[in-house]
Write a protein that binds this DNA or RNA. Structure first.
Lengths: 267, 267
DNA sequence: CTCGGTAGGAGGTCAGACCACGTCAAGTAT
DNA sequence: ATACTTGACGTGGTCTGACCTCCTACCGAG
């Protein structure tokens, strides 16, 4: 009787509790590091003590310490460099880039869905950048646009500046959360784009559009920037042939098959 | 001279390479699991072999196997249950919920930024749900709205159905990527909300708004659903006193201080 | 001054033993 | 016969301590 409401909470709100992620020691490490970060002792780019030493300090085995560090590294909070040390991440924040492609494989993400997500995100990002961007950002954007025009003949290089341009807009938006999300989504598309770009034919047009976006942002025309960005991405999507299938019969494969119950084993 | 362009790529495109995340064995495990997932051998909810056995199969030590599994678990791809086994995640996909709060602490995410992100995401999600939602979703949404009205006197319970309602919309949007992103963002706000909700006074009004949103989605009025959702969230934001400070002087603390160089150590 | 090698420090892997938690079925009491 | 207790077993969690690999910095040879 009471088990009913109990199970309900447990099954439907799997994230209410501190997660089933890890166990004592691992969380101990994570929380310790979290504390160090929150109280400012640890800042982006800093190096943490060597494993042996750190483990001794936390009174846990090196193995457990490593589990915790690995957890943090997996989430992009720390960067491990073999033979050098472990550092607090400092680059553009991301929510575990690798995760999206894995989870994507698991849940069957489609390319058009990535574009849809990207359009929704970058539309707003462009508008916000137009409202809040600073000279610093404008300068860097301008620079990347110039680089794009300069590398029209070298698709691989062009793509780098393309990505950089969008990343700067994300930063200029003044919302690191959205920037992190965009970073996650786009990075999972990078590989695919790198292949497609090679046979691209209209990089010039693409560069033009970037310049227009830049101009709109510079003169703080949010609506214009937003519309241009959307137009740009839709064009990119078309170029990559990733339109959403007109009216798939959506066999509910994903939603229905997952309902049953967490079946136990299987070899 | 050439080192310049070289460094540029390395520093500005930290995700070009296979990431500096982990080492041989760990990646070996990750790739192996990825392969199993992609070829359909492993599906959501499935249990993977016991560590000892799996490790032997991959010809690596149990410790390394555990590192890899830990990596996957950290990203939300797998769920580990002590004393039971390790399973492929099956719930609503998320990009490492814990990561956002950690990365948030690291980069100083603000509450208003979370709301901003949430508004941008859910606006679109509501619109998409209106366009693509199925009867199944409508039914479940309706149910949650009813539950909300029924639990107006119990904020804690109300919040559960509130979250559920938004989650169903995300599913109804037909874009699991956006749903996953939203899940990640909202879950990091859950704790805060649970505290705020206790002293909430106008849950009735909140419930009304949810019903309106539901109706708009049901009759497939995308624009209306989008606007109502935005209105709803802005109201929630105000209730939680998380407006964006009018014109903070943005001391560039975050952007400027991180420039220098990856300073080496610091005890 | 430059080049090459070497020593040390840091992370990566391994092995095997033991601990902690959940499950389920055998056993016991009712 | 049913219901509760209890303990064996399987699974993940932790520990120890040894060894490997990689990167860096130092230092002597040229």
């Amino acid at each position: 009787m009471l088990s009913l409401s109990f199970l309900k909470d447990l099954l439907l709100m799997p994230h209410t509790a501190p997660d089933l992620s890890n166990s004592h020691r691992t969380m101990h490490v994570v929380n310790h590091v979290r504390a160090l970060i929150e109280n400012g002792t640890l800042q982006p780019g800093d190096k943490i003590p060597p494993e042996r030493e750190f483990a001794r300090a936390l009174k846990i085995s090196r193995a457990s310490l490593r589990t915790g560090i690995g957890y943090l590294a997996a989430m992009g909070v720390m960067k491990i460099r073999h033979g050098v040390g472990t550092f607090v991440a400092d680059g553009p924040p991301d929510l575990g880039k690798a995760s999206l492609s894995l989870i994507g494989a698991l849940h069957g993400f489609q390319t058009w869905q990535m574009f849809e997500a990207r359009i929704i995100l970058e539309r707003s990002l462009a508008a916000l950048a137009a409202e809040r961007g600073k000279e610093e950002h404008h300068a860097r954007m301008s620079e990347e646009v110039a680089e794009m025009f300069a590398t029209i003949e070298r698709p691989a290089d062009y793509l780098i500046h393309d990505v950089l341009f969008h990343r700067i807009i994300a930063q200029a938006s003044g919302n690191p959360i959205l920037a992190a999300v965009m970073e996650t989504v786009t990075s999972s598309m990078y590989d695919k784009r790198r292949k497609t770009v090679e046979r691209a034919t209209d990089l010039r047009e693409s560069a033009e559009m970037h310049r227009e976006i830049y101009r709109a942002i510079r003169v703080r025309k949010a609506d214009e920037a937003r519309d241009l960005m959307e137009k740009h991405l839709r064009m990119a999507q078309t170029a990559q042939g990733a339109e959403r299938p007109a009216d798939r019969k959506v066999s509910t494969t994903s939603a229905a098959a997952r309902r049953p119950r967490p079946r136990t084993a299987r070899s």
